[in-house]
Write a protein that binds this DNA or RNA. Structure first.
Lengths: 202, 202
DNA sequence: TACTTTCTGTACCAATAAGTACATAAATAT
DNA sequence: ATATTTATGTACTTATTGGTACAGAAAGTA
């Protein structure tokens, strides 16, 4: 181990605590006292370990998106686009059932902000775009495999699913019981184009 | 006219200016200097005329939702649920084509916030619920009229359309070109249940 | 004209924001 | 044991936040 007094807290655990605060209050709404008290460390320790508030946020954001990408990547391995989307949206429901901050960091951390946080806002927008791109890739594959009917726009479908996901983040953030979203998830899944032969009657 | 020096600015015009700022930067992100400079009035004038920042916001919010309700109410007069939804979502696109702050005040003004703004956040949530309720009412009527197939859940459908609307707010706020949303609006409209006899082939 | 009422602008206040200086504590390296 | 390196906690600084006191200006009323 390198010389010097060892850090008394676990860096990743601290980041996870910070992530919760950012998710709950947003980037700007999370004050330094909010963060330090949740992380259980003093202000100078935070600065020593993470640089500053924005760098801390970026690290939390990176961690969040790493888990997110991994989870989505797994889900998109489902055999059909339809099954993948269903699991994707049901996961959103599940992830918001456990106690803790509700919603999606990529959506709500800085949807709007003061001038100082414009950079953060843009970063979030690009993170969302990345996820939308994953969806699109999956749908293009489905199209190539004949899983989705020819003529379907992978881009439009990806946009729809992403849009529904963002909307779900707003809904759960607003306090809706996650399970209440089940029905609308089913309708969304049903909206995915399929070949006439696959359609089941109501 | 009542005695005393007359106000040198138009109250409603000032509120509209404030509304733009709140839409762009959110309730907390909009600083007093941001507001006063946009409104073209001094800080004490703002306080004299509107009370304080939160009251000003509430007035802006009320104005926004008044226009919103009116517009949605009109759109929902369309003969079918499907036509109503289509126009509703196309209006979202149109409203974000003109320059100015993008998105929806009810969604982004305080999706997350510091402790002081919890009240505002809740108010926004209830404003959204009110709009969702309008949708639901319309769908229940459609159900009663046989416009929507029996067995359709008006609540779930209202939830879906509202969720898509919120998601669209996130999308346009993130900088997407409004027209890019056209395709996904079409898919959303196509997702509205209809009788088998009405379905047109792809 | 004098008086009252209300608005406007400068200049301020207390509270809080993010960020840091510095002395001290705790570890490793020699 | 001593020196070195790094972490910690108290206490501070500067900038900005929302909010206000107060003097002066502009109107109506008598």
């Amino acid at each position: 181990m390198s010389a010097g007094r060892p850090r008394e807290f676990d860096t990743n655990a601290a980041i996870d605590k910070a992530l919760e605060v950012f998710k709950q209050k947003g980037y700007e709404g999370a004050s330094l006292p909010d963060l330090t008290s949740a992380m259980g460390i003093s202000r100078p320790s935070l600065y020593a370990a993470f640089g500053n508030k924005e760098e801390l946020f970026q690290k939390a954001l990176e961690r969040y998106n790493q888990k997110m990408s991994e989870s989505i990547g797994e889900v998109l391995n489902a055999p059909t686009a339809r099954a993948a989307v269903e699991q994707l949206l049901l996961n959103v429901i599940d992830n918001n059932k456990c106690k803790g901050a509700k919603g999606c960091l990529n959506v709500q951390a800085a949807l709007v902000c003061g001038d100082n946080a414009e950079g953060v806002k843009q970063e979030l927008s690009s993170r969302r775009a990345r996820i939308e791109w994953m969806l699109r890739q999956r749908f293009e594959r489905a199209l190539a495999e004949g899983d989705l009917p020819a003529g379907t726009s992978a881009a439009d479908l990806a946009c729809l699913i992403a849009t529904v996901m963002y909307g779900m983040a707003v809904q759960v953030n607003g306090g809706i019981a996650p399970d209440t979203l089940r029905g609308m998830v089913n309708m969304t899944v049903a909206a995915i184009p399929q070949h006439a032969s696959q359609k089941k009657s109501a």
